[in-house]
Design a protein around this nucleic acid. Structure first.
Lengths: 211, 211, 211, 211
DNA sequence: AATGAATGAGAATTCATTCAT
DNA sequence: TATGAATGAATTCTCATTCAT
């Protein structure tokens, strides 16, 4: 990409980033149409290719940007009790909602990366995704897993939570408009049920910030 | 479509169906390329359009076929304890694996229908999908939900199970080759943990066929 | 072409000839569709190519056939006063209607040859058309042109008659069904007016058979 | 169509219009090949579809253009004695030759519209053709038909003239190059003979501008 | 002789990318 | 910097022709 992109007015940069992210998130790499992105961003096609050599270059940039921004906000704004699994999980979703204010499609876009199956896109993007996964893993590092009942396998539990939340996110994004409150309610209810099912009675951390 | 398709040798029919299903499942309706399907099936492009008028016609046919076949096998081969949630769920996955023997991409294809976002594809296919959802709902009708702990909300629980299993399925299909044993192991472990977390102690149906 | 065509039952031969002629007449050489011809004739595509090597071969055969048949009927059934221009002209149209009974599209097909602009078709067919033109010219050989007023140039007059009759023919064929009576009425009225305009007063052959 | 077409250099617009008109005129709507038009116009296929959404869109545009241009020139440059049938007819042909200087295929194209038999093309184009027919009819409104001999039926006469002139036009366009002088000579000779045959002796308007 | 399944070159159309202005 | 006209390879679909049965 052309570094001069960053000399553009922030507002224009963001229009371009949001346009690209939206179209990529909704269609995947291959099916995403340059014309549509350009229309979303309100700029010309020529300019697009002036800053980003080609579609894969733009994709790479946007992946990088989304992940760096998300990771940054995780570091800046995630302030849940780091020892509590559910508070942490809920807090991460809160951060996603925060990010949505500036970049409405970052959460869906990050989620869509898992389904990407264009080999070209995958090979261009693998290392960035690792950055995000590591950051998330890091957020869970101080989680106290002693609260869980003995029959709870951590890996399976984590997988259950992450697949389900991914499903909820995608369902909510499929609506005409994304209803943030409704989304957070669904997440909260889900997490509460998961806590009730997994935490040893009497120890179920009552201060867990999931509400 | 041209009804003479059914006069073809079964093996050729299946090559065509599998080719179409694979490419549709992996790419979605729009991005799926006729050329690729044709190559997968080892036939000529012309023949494709001899039997199916156009891409959407083929898609409709394949959706119909996948769902009818899956529903048929559910009726013929699902013989788990119908009152046990986990046995039923596991049994359905066993049926999917059975279907895979003849049509390797039916499970992924059915799962992919949820993500389809081409309006053309959706409007052509809506009613068929309902048939499948109804059949699945029907399988759960006799499930005894009294075994669940009072803090277990049925809708949230079902959603958790279905999103997670969808996730596992897609992850396994993303591997070079689909390892059936590994897939069923993951499903079993997951369901066992869900049972352990949700069923009232002492009633946890010890005969539940999830192994 | 394959001479064995003539061993087929006459009725089948004619179905094939009529089917081809109709589709060629209505669409021209290039646009004429093999499928349509085959459907019109009620036979299989394979058989078509069994008797006629390819489209141009069939076209050549049909042109040849139409012209030979038309010329034969001109010789057999044209019995107007050969010295009278209008009687002869009208008589030729009567022969066309006669031919229509067996081969409904011969008249239109012959007329369409003038508009053919596919180079391939033209080069394959030139000599046959000459046969027809010569036969028509021959029919006019004994016409007495002394009856025409001095300001009537024969070439221009002939051209006027032939272009106008071609136009009428095509207009009538454009109707849902070809109305023979109506067609012959239009021809008669036209020829009568032409006679009134061109023949020297007082000599206007009152027995001229144009009705 | 894309209105920006009109921002192109006039010369390029005309190359595109002429290319399309030529290929449509010679082949009819269906058989007309985009590749051929593109080659005629010396531009790329992509550009074609950048300005005109699809083949029928281009066809509609070209019909509209040809008719508006022809009607405009009829209003601007037809200055024959409006009461004289032959002068008016000849004048219209002069206007066609004038139009040919800018758009060589307009006359043939307009003539070809009568033979169009693609339903798609016909339904897209019906109203435009009416505009042209009305304009022509309008040109004949002041014609004095009292000069004609009593045996001359106006409808049959008009039909004779129009079919014959259509025939001459198409014959001349069938030559390698269109010889304007030769064409106008044929038209003049034809009209003179028609006048001699139809106008009452002694009144034959001697100033009629057909020479 | 007869069928129609099968083929592949060619048609219209889309879309990432380039380039003159 | 910014535009959008221009390109051509790829895509969906058609059709004359071939070939196994």
């Amino acid at each position: 990409m052309n570094e001069k992109f960053f000399d553009l007015k922030k507002e224009k940069q963001d229009r371009m980033i949001n346009g690209a992210m939206k179209v990529f998130a909704l269609n995947g790499f291959q099916r995403a149409s340059t014309d549509e992105m350009v229309k979303e961003a309100g700029i010309s096609k020529g300019l697009w290719f002036h800053y980003f050599d080609n579609k894969i270059g733009l994709y790479t940039f946007v992946v990088d940007y989304a992940i760096k921004y998300m990771n940054m906000e995780l570091s800046a704004s995630l302030n849940a009790d780091p020892s509590d699994f559910f508070a942490t999980t809920y807090g991460i979703e809160e951060v996603k909602m925060l990010v949505r204010r500036s970049y409405p499609y970052v959460p869906l876009f990050l989620s869509s990366l898992n389904q990407e199956n264009s080999p070209e896109a995958l090979s261009a993007v693998g290392e960035y995704i690792t950055l995000y996964r590591d950051r998330i893993r890091n957020a869970y590092e101080q989680v106290n897993r002693a609260i869980f009942a003995p029959y709870v396998n951590g890996d399976i539990f984590d997988m259950t939570v992450s697949f389900t939340m991914k499903g909820i996110l995608e369902e909510e994004y499929a609506h005409e408009v994304f209803d943030e409150e409704r989304y957070m309610n669904r997440i909260r209810e889900f997490l509460e049920q998961m806590r009730a099912m997994s935490v040893i009675t009497g120890e179920s951390n009552p201060e867990g910030r999931t509400e």
